[in-house]
């Protein structure tokens, strides 16, 4: 048959998927592979030659104290933010699925921070921390202290993502059938027990998804970091992504910056894959 001929298939592929595939390869795959090569050079971003230096960049990256400090900070920030994001968003989802009057309005309201980009949100909160909270609590700004800046960053991230994760948990709540819950109540569960032993296990996939999404977003946080704290005070709130950016584009150590980015990618990939594997194990079906 004509449809099975290879040339016909290729022609069909190029006609439908050609431009899409080409863009994807050009923007994602080619830079990724070229980026791996760049880690082996000491390019300064301007000159035409990219001197080959072998694994020197990785050696340097592993001994770059600032980088690992930023990485450690990112891990701490991510752990705290992810836990808080999920607690807050689960609580919000619980409250807006009880059949309360106006719950759709509340859902829509909690989602609003997600509509606006991190840069603008960061500046809005900078004003809140530097002016409003200073006026309310009559103290110096939290953003000017080292732990305070981290606290602000976590708080803004929780505020920013809670509404989004809430929507996923709401979908989770809706997917748990009322029958199962009622059956457990008839069997003598209190509503807290029904939540803990029936609803939450059935919502496992929502948890996996929210935790995965919040980890991946927190780990490469950049926009809010830039506009809210810009790494200040004294570089104490520079996250890994910002360090990588500065290393490459501000200090023009493209090779070193790229190596540090690749390490960041490796960490992300390991965390992501582990998390999905753990999540998939022990999924429950109703």
């Amino acid at each position: 048959m004509k449809q099975n001929k290879l040339s016909y298939k290729i022609q069909q592929y190029l006609m439908f998927a050609g431009p899409g595939t080409a863009l994807f390869l050009a923007v994602v795959i080619v830079p990724f592979i070229y980026g791996l090569y760049l880690t082996l050079t000491s390019w300064d971003g301007v000159s035409a030659t990219k001197p080959f230096v072998g694994f020197k960049n990785f050696v340097e990256a592993f001994s770059d104290g600032d980088y690992w400090a930023a990485m450690g900070r990112t891990v701490i920030y991510s752990i705290i933010a992810v836990v808080l994001i999920n607690i807050v968003s689960f609580a919000l989802a619980f409250l807006v699925t009880r059949g309360i009057k106006g719950q759709n309005f509340f859902r829509a309201g909690f989602f609003v921070p997600n509509l606006i980009g991190g840069i603008v949100l960061g500046y809005v909160w900078k004003f809140v921390f530097n002016r409003a909270f200073v006026a309310i609590f009559n103290s110096t700004s939290l953003l000017s202290t080292t732990n305070g800046a981290m606290f602000c960053l976590i708080m803004v991230s929780v505020w920013q993502y809670a509404g989004y994760m809430m929507l996923i948990y709401v979908a989770g709540f809706m997917s748990v059938s009322k029958d199962v819950e009622e059956a457990s109540r008839i069997d003598g569960c209190t509503s807290a027990q029904a939540m803990k032993n029936v609803t939450i296990p059935l919502m496992r996939s929502s948890f996996v998804q929210c935790i995965f999404l919040s980890i991946t977003r927190c780990f490469v946080v950049y926009d809010v970091n830039l506009s809210l704290t810009n790494g200040e005070p004294f570089k104490s709130s520079t996250m890994a992504a910002m360090h990588v950016y500065n290393q490459a584009f501000t200090f023009k150590n493209y090779g070193l910056g790229q190596s540090e980015a690749v390490i960041l990618f490796a960490v992300c990939a390991i965390v992501g894959v582990t998390q999905v594997l753990i999540g998939k194990r022990g999924e429950v079906e109703a």
Binding site: V28, F32, G35, L38, G45, V220
Partner: peptide, 15 residues
């Protein structure tokens, strides 16, 4: 490719 963060691609992209 969905696990690749943008930070890994930005330097080669610009280059």
């Amino acid at each position: 490719s969905m696990v690749i963060p943008f930070q890994v691609l930005m330097v080669p992209l610009v280059s």
